[in-house]
Each structure stands twice: as C-alpha cells, then as structure tokens.
Design a protein around this nucleic acid. Structure first.
Lengths: 93, 93
DNA sequence: CACTAGGGATAGGGTTTA
DNA sequence: TTAAACCCTATCCCTAGT
C-alpha cells in the first residue's frame, strides 16, 4: 500500500515481488479501488526553480540525489515526479 | 496520430515519444488542422446503464478497466469519454 | 535490489457542437 | 446561451531493464 496519502514524506507505491501462485489480473485492479491515486498538484515556481538548479548541479537522471538535495522543497514529490516534471519542462526543445 | 476516425476500435490520440531532435511546437498545431475532431455522438441508455453498473463494480477512476469490462457496449468510446460522461452524469446533484 | 526511463492512465481545465 | 460531448496535457502510475 502507498503511505501516507498526504503529509509526511512521500514514498513510492511498490508491489511485493510476484509470488508463485497465479493471481487473477482482476486482483490488481480490485486493489486499485482501495489504493487511491494522489490528487494532481500543480508545480510551484519555487519547485520548478529548485529542479532547474538541481539538474544543472547534479545532472539529469540523478533524480534520487536531486530529490535528496532539496527535501525541503520537494517534500510532497517523489523522485519519479521530478523525472516526470523535467520531461515536461524540456518536452518541446 | 489518432486512428481510426470512425469504424473499428477507438484509440486515444497519442503523440510519439519525444525524440532527440527538438521539434517546433508549431508542428503540433499544424498537425491539428488535419486531425479531425470526432462527430459528437449522443450516449444511449444502454451505454449509460453499463457505465453506472461498471463504476459501481470497479470504482470511479478506473476508466480503462471499466472500458475493458464492456467493450461490446463502449466500442465507439474511449476511456476518457467514459470519464467525461461520468462527470456529466454526476455534475449536478 | 534500489533506481531510472519511458510508455500508459487519470484529473481537471478548455473547446466545440448542437 | 447552455449542457453534453470531445480535446489537451500536466501530473501521476506501472514496470522492464540495469
């Protein structure tokens, strides 16, 4: 399960390793009903600036390092969020 | 590119993944002139009922799952259409 | 095994049609 | 003018690959 949904430090949702027993595909989706998706939150200018600075400093791709470098600003983001945001910010050249 | 515009199974419009080469944003808009908008099609009672049932069963938000659960009825809709329709159906009250 | 890359899905604001 | 239908796309999720 993903915890916590709000407040506290973000952790990425992670399923356990596949088990031996075959599991109906529906299982996963049934789970989905209880594992709420995060509400989309618009990036602030401060966050964008921090990301630009950190990428310049640590290099694109080092998302975990970048995230750790500014926990104060990125508290409610995951390292994957940073990766996704950078993709958006650089999407059209 | 969105295919097909009519007939066959609906697919969502999807741009290719970003390439190395920068692409002018204008490209997209130029493209837009040739990608026709679908002709609005009224939702049938059968479709509305199927949507209500499926949302009850699988939960609001699991649009792809819902779409897959009744392909026969939703054949000419996309999962986004389902989401939009649900928004309309629950908009007031 | 922790992390990243990249394709997929959803949420919500916008736009167009009837 | 309005509501339904449809579109746009930032944000978030999934997971193969390393």
């Amino acid at each position: 399960m993903r915890l916590p949904l709000d407040g506290g430090q973000m952790k990425r949702f992670h399923l356990d390793s596949p088990k031996r027993k075959a599991v109906s595909p529906l299982k996963k989706y049934e789970l989905a009903r209880f594992v709420k998706r995060r509400k989309p939150k618009k990036w602030s200018l401060e966050e964008e600036d921090a990301l630009r600075e950190a990428v310049k400093k640590y290099g694109k791709g080092n998302w975990k390092l970048i995230w750790n470098s500014r926990r104060d600003v990125f508290q409610e983001r995951t390292e994957v969020d940073l990766k996704d945001k950078w993709r958006n910010m650089t999407r059209y050249g």
